[in-house]
Design a protein around this nucleic acid. Sequence first.
DNA 1: GTCTAATCGTTCGCGTACGATCCTTTGTGC
DNA 2: GCACAAAGGATCGTACGCGAACGATTAGAC
Lengths: 155, 155
Amino acid sequence: MTEDPLALDRQVCFALAATSRSVIGLYRPVLEPLGLTHPQYLVMLSLWERSPRTARDIAAALFLEPPTLTPLLKRLEAAGLVSRARNPEDERELRVELTDAGRALRARAEQVPGRIVERLGVPIETLEQVRDSLTHLLRATVVAQAAPTADSPAA
Amino acid sequence: MTEDPLALDRQVCFALAATSRSVIGLYRPVLEPLGLTHPQYLVMLSLWERSPRTARDIAAALFLEPPTLTPLLKRLEAAGLVSRARNPEDERELRVELTDAGRALRARAEQVPGRIVERLGVPIETLEQVRDSLTHLLRATVVAQAAPTADSPAA
DNA sequence: GTCTAATCGTTCGCGTACGATCCTTTGTGC
DNA sequence: GCACAAAGGATCGTACGCGAACGATTAGAC
């Protein structure tokens, strides 16, 4: 009965997509008072770790393509949280930097993870375990992207 | 050093979002010959399980909101894989049904999971374990959505 | 120095994804 | 019956997300 390899409940990709959307949905009401969407929150996290960063650097850290990041950064700039400027040393690069407001927002953001865990009602140990499994899987996908097929290794 | 609760690498939500996007990216070249995007593939999976289904039923199965499903179904109809019609018994309901082409596509889709697993290079047991952890987490988010805050139970 | 290739970001087009709102249809109270 | 609530989708507006193509800048070949 449940032998069907196409059963929805058996698909890792479905569990991933649905859980990702659902968890992000939990963040919505928590991030709204901060004026951030979830992707914007992730960009801010990357900048709170290290502030002048290039767009490419941020895109790599978040596993995002450049066309996704460009409008994201523009909205954060419009919100006054970030500044965007070309690097004088290399005009190709875009230097993204926290503004004072962007730095100040960190204090309020520090309460976000705790509130999410509280709402979820799942032990932190469980969450950390899931996170580590996902990180492992993420690395596998990066390797897989590099090698298109099993029998056609990188040229 | 890694005590920072806002560190990107510690966020479950980031691991979820990045892994979800990355895995879906693996599906892209595999699903492209079938003329399907990943969300469309999930809709087809739900229909291959049971064919005349209402839009609401499909949305619930995929954890999608109705505004997301409507254009998805219209594209599948335009592709000739699905038919959309009001239920004569209850004109509010939309009956979504596989066409012959939609049923026929299943044969080709059966090779998809295997090709993904092959590309990923991760043992199936590991994938199933991740899937089960995610399903558990997904259920927790559904419960959390119903109870907005810890101290404000459902009225 | 000049021609060419590589790098970086942006723009364009298309397809999700969802909150808010609306419309139609059905169910309910009376 | 009739007013009214509820249910099921559709529409609107906004925000990702990415492949393909583009433009500007820099690095390399010679």
